[in-house]
């Protein structure tokens, strides 16, 4: 369970560029929830993820994961419980190392001086084969030779090879071509369902924000301004979502990559 209470963050405090990016934000996510997050440019969506994953330490407030206070824990310590995917498929993997070496690092099993065992290699081959991308036969090739979609799929495997308490997906299909995006999204849904992962996903696709997952949040100016789930969400349309935003924020939702169309 993720429990965030009253976290705030100001970038460049004390200067003319001071910007309040998280404003006493509260959020509670139960185990097994799949939450989609939407919002305008600069609403603080990725900033919220950065705060949760420890990319920066918040100015105030408290973050708890599985009952453990991680407010001040460094990023690499939180990574034991938090998996994260970025929009840029290059960010999650080491291009100069082979697929199996990347997976071995992510798996993190064995002592510091242990080598890859045959069992590990077999395990990697098996999970790679489930992607149906033929990567199980390319395990000794450098990651850099893979396409964006393939790299993102492997990054997803790496983030979930030890099922995390929380999976953060930051528009992880936005940089992929439509076919690859669908494929990666399908793999995401499979793994989230199979491992019963708790998951937060930022998306610019209004339709998938409503159809994917169990709960939808809308952010604006560093706050959560809308939080819908259950029956209310089931009956919601993209137009309802836009209307609600206009009612609450007093302006129309504006995001240069926002996909309003159902088919997009």
């Amino acid at each position: 369970m993720l429990n965030i209470s009253e976290i705030s963050k100001t970038f460049n405090p004390g200067t003319v560029n001071a910007k309040l990016v998280l404003d006493k934000l509260d959020l509670k996510v139960e185990d097994g929830e799949f939450v989609t997050i939407i919002g305008a440019n600069g609403a603080g969506k990725s900033t919220l993820f950065n705060a949760i994953s420890g990319n920066f330490i918040t100015d105030s407030g408290r973050i708890e994961l599985d009952g453990e206070d991680i407010t001040l824990a460094p990023e690499y310590v939180r990574a034991r419980k938090i998996g994260r995917l970025f929009q840029d498929p290059m960010r999650g993997t080491a291009a100069g190392m082979t697929i199996e070496e990347n997976l071995m690092l992510a798996a993190g099993r064995g002592g510091w001086l242990s080598h890859m065992t045959k069992e590990q290699r077999d395990e990697f081959r098996e999970i790679l084969s489930k992607l149906n991308m033929g990567l199980e036969d390319r395990m000794k090739q450098p990651m850099g030779l893979l396409s964006g979609g393939q790299r993102q799929a492997v990054t997803l495997l790496m983030a979930t090879i030890n099922p995390p308490s929380l999976l953060l997906l930051d528009e992880h299909t936005a940089a992929l071509d439509p076919a690859a995006a669908d494929k990666v999204l399908e793999i995401t849904e499979d793994v989230v369902k199979k491992e019963r992962l708790t998951c937060l996903m930022i998306t610019h696709n209004m339709q998938s924000a409503l159809t994917l997952g169990t709960r939808t949040l809308m952010m604006d100016h560093g706050k959560i301004i809308l939080d819908v789930s259950g029956k209310e969400r089931e009956s919601m349309t993209v137009q309802d979502l836009l209307d609600r935003f206009k009612d609450i924020a007093g302006r129309t939702l504006d995001n240069d990559r926002m996909l309003l169309d159902k088919d997009a």
Binding site: G83, R91, A94, M97
Partner: peptide
Amino acid sequence: FLRTRLGLAIRATGNNPDMVKSSSIN
């Protein structure tokens, strides 16, 4: 050494430090 887990982590540090952090390694 460069094929051990520590060696891999050292190589990844030069390659992509973000990825090292997300593998829970400092």
